[in-house]
Simulated assay, not measured.
Amino acid sequence: MSAQHAETPGPGALPLRNIGDIRAALRSGHGFPGDRESFEADLQRALETSSETDLNAVAAVIVDYRGRIRLYQDPDFDVAIQEGTDLTALLKREAPGR
């Protein structure tokens, strides 16, 4: 049996222990644009396709959005996005045939 990766929140991280915590964080504007609505739709789809003994799809939605919220909170996230955008622009300018 393999050990599952447990996300350890950093200092000042939101408590995201359950669906209510995730909903509250998304209502407060944490997460990416559209995540609040997408979470509810994804959760509903997962619930509809899950059996009463297999809720893995529901757990996957919870883990995914918990990760998205934590990623959005990361102060280095914006820096990483900007670096990627700058690198893409540089590569486009240097591309042969331009």
Rank of each mutant, 00 (worst) to 15 (best):
Q4T: 13
F77D: 01
I69N: 05
D21L: 08
G84N: 15
R27V: 05
A3S: 13
S2P: 15
E94F: 13
T53W: 07
D76L: 12
E37D: 14
A89V: 15
L16S: 05
P11A: 12
A25P: 07
A60E: 12
S50D: 09
F77P: 00
S51K: 07
L71Q: 13
D74K: 01
L16T: 06
P96A: 15
G12S: 06
E37P: 00
R66M: 13
A6R: 14
T49K: 12
L43Q: 02
Q82E: 14
G84V: 06
V61P: 02
R66H: 08
E52A: 04
D42H: 14
N56L: 12
S51W: 01
Q44S: 14
G20D: 13
L16N: 04
G67L: 08
L71C: 04
L71W: 09
H5L: 15
E83Q: 14
M1N: 12
G67E: 07
V79R: 15
S50H: 07
A41Q: 15
H30K: 10
G31I: 02
G12R: 14
A46E: 09
R98I: 06
Y65Q: 07
D42F: 11
Q73K: 06
I81F: 09
F39Y: 10
R70C: 04
E48Q: 14
T88C: 09
D35N: 10
A41V: 10
R98V: 13
L26Q: 01
V79W: 08
Q44H: 11
R66D: 07
E7G: 06
I62N: 00
R70N: 06
P75I: 07
D76I: 01
H30G: 02
